[in-house]
Design a protein around this nucleic acid. Structure first.
Length: 323
DNA sequence: AACTGAGCCAACCGCCGGCTT
DNA sequence: AAAGCCGGCGGTTGGCTCAGT
């Protein structure tokens, strides 16, 4: 069974020979690919257009970065995957010179195992049930015991759909409260509405505590209010597990705030990723090194850190968490 | 040296959405 | 509106490599 695009012609399959590569490179560098379906014929190849496209994108493109992934790239993949899920093409956009196929293979062969070794579910980035130890839960954070466990897996799709945020909104705007109302617990505009202007909230959902019970349509960042399920993942970079620390600031938070804070973290990272995405597109420079890239690693790190650890000198300071 | 199993990765498969006719 | 084409994407597979026995 072949692709519909090549079912009518005799096509070669399997690995590409150097001669085929040369033909394809010569043709595309001279003429561009134009319509991929016509490339094989014009380039003198016994392949289908799809195969040519794939070969070019994944292997022959001159701007590809070869070699193993750096720890920085690995970290980006994990961070973005936590937000986007298995959207490899989107993830690859954050890694100049890497392809979706490459990222996907790297994830399946390497990162997945690392996360599992850390006791993390690679799909949800949450701790696997067998790894949810009392050591973590007893570390000054008790609302995890009272909150229901998420009934749905972490889903970026649901997050993007249900809590999509206008990525054109300036980050500072996104984080601004109505200036006349300094009481966090009763802002003039509910914070979750501010963050998610497109969301339609029922009266019941407007109460975050009840919201936590309506799992199916709510992003898991809400349902994982402590955020400490990500702790080990973050700590894996330092090579040793650091138990979650809930700061005094966090303990002072109202339950609503405790719920919202990790969501804000997630929003912040989403916004930053979108920003990086946009900048990347604008630059359209696949040769850009990470040194030159506009992806703010420090920011990503800070925003993705668990609660109580994440907002050093970040715009999050604008929030009066301890008000 | 030969065998074997695991891991990696290039390539394929099938589905989907957008566009054209 | 429907059908066909095409590019893009994520999931899967098959073959190659290499370490271990």
């Amino acid at each position: 069974m072949g692709h519909h695009c090549c079912s009518k012609q005799k096509v070669k399959r399997g690995l590409w020979s150097p001669e085929e590569d040369e033909k394809l490179v010569n043709y595309i560098t001279t003429h561009g690919h134009g319509s991929w379906s016509s490339v094989p014929k014009l380039a003198g190849l016994q392949r289908c257009g799809k195969s040519c496209r794939l070969r070019w994108i994944n292997y022959l493109r001159p701007d590809l970065k070869r070699g193993s992934f750096s720890s920085q790239e690995e970290r980006i993949i994990i961070d973005v995957h936590r937000i986007l899920g298995n959207r490899w093409a989107q993830i690859a956009k954050h890694l100049p010179g890497r392809t979706d196929n490459e990222v996907k293979n790297f994830w399946n062969s390497c990162i997945k195992k690392k996360l599992l070794a850390q006791g993390l579910d690679p799909n949800t980035h949450n701790l696997l049930p067998s790894h949810k130890t009392n050591d973590i839960h007893n570390n000054g954070c008790n609302f995890s015991h009272t909150n229901p466990k998420p009934t749905s897996l972490f889903s970026v799709n649901s997050l993007m759909t249900d809590a999509s945020v206008d990525m054109n909104t300036p980050f500072s705007t996104l984080l601004s409260f109505p200036p006349t109302d300094n009481n966090f617990s009763s802002p003039t505009i509910p914070i979750y509405e501010l963050l998610n202007p497109n969301a339609v909230w029922t009266n019941q959902e407007q109460n975050p505590s009840s919201l936590m019970g309506s799992a199916s349509s709510v992003s898991s960042s809400l349902l994982n209010p402590s955020g400490y399920d990500s702790v080990q993942e973050n700590c894996m970079w330092s090579g040793s597990f650091q138990p979650m620390e809930i700061t005094k600031q966090d303990e002072m938070l109202q339950p609503e705030e405790q719920v919202l804070k990790p969501q804000l973290e997630m929003k912040a990272s989403e916004v930053e990723i979108k920003k990086a995405d946009k900048l990347s597109d604008e630059q359209n420079n696949m040769d850009a090194s990470f040194v030159n890239s506009n992806f703010d690693f420090d920011f990503t790190e800070s925003t993705l850190m668990p609660c109580g650890m994440f907002y050093n000198a970040s715009p999050m300071d604008q929030f009066a968490w301890d008000c």
